[in-house]
């Protein structure tokens, strides 16, 4: 009987675990943290504030159509965006309104590679990637 109750409780908890999606996002962040520490022994933690600065900074090294993250994602990451090159609608980046964000490592890495080159004109560092995800996870 108790075992059965526990099973019911476990099944009932499943949607919440899936909804949070935290384990997968945490694993991605842990990976970037290890790389950030390897690059700089003084690395302590990711910063949502640095992530927000990265998100809003106007860069000069990339594509003139995408001088900042906000060019496609708008100034409010909880809003849908629009690809500045193709016009394609983009789902919100903020995790609170789009919990699927930053849960698939291959997709995350592919998107950072494309977008950082397009916006900053260079690859982002592990520190920048972790800061960005940390900012979006709190949005």
């Amino acid at each position: 009987m108790i075992r059965r109750l526990m099973l019911v409780a476990a099944v009932a908890a499943l949607p919440f675990v899936a909804l949070a999606g935290d384990a997968r996002r945490d694993a991605i962040l842990a990976d970037y943290a290890a790389k950030a520490r390897a690059a700089d022994k003084g690395f302590a933690a990711f910063s949502a504030q640095r992530g927000e600065t990265l998100f809003r900074t106007k860069w000069t090294g990339g594509d003139s159509r995408t001088t900042s993250c906000t060019a496609c994602h708008t100034a409010n990451p909880r809003q849908p965006g629009q690809n500045a090159k193709t016009g394609r609608a983009i789902d919100p980046v903020a995790v609170s309104v789009n919990p699927k964000r930053f849960t698939d490592p291959a997709t995350v890495e592919k998107q950072f590679t494309r977008d950082c080159r397009s916006v900053l004109g260079r690859d982002c560092t592990p520190l920048e990637k972790g800061d960005y995800i940390t900012f979006m996870a709190g949005q």
Partner: peptide, 10 residues
């Protein structure tokens, strides 16, 4: 809303 000619869905 269009941005480019290939944005069919616009």
């Amino acid at each position: 809303k269009v941005v480019t000619r290939s944005n069919c869905a616009a």
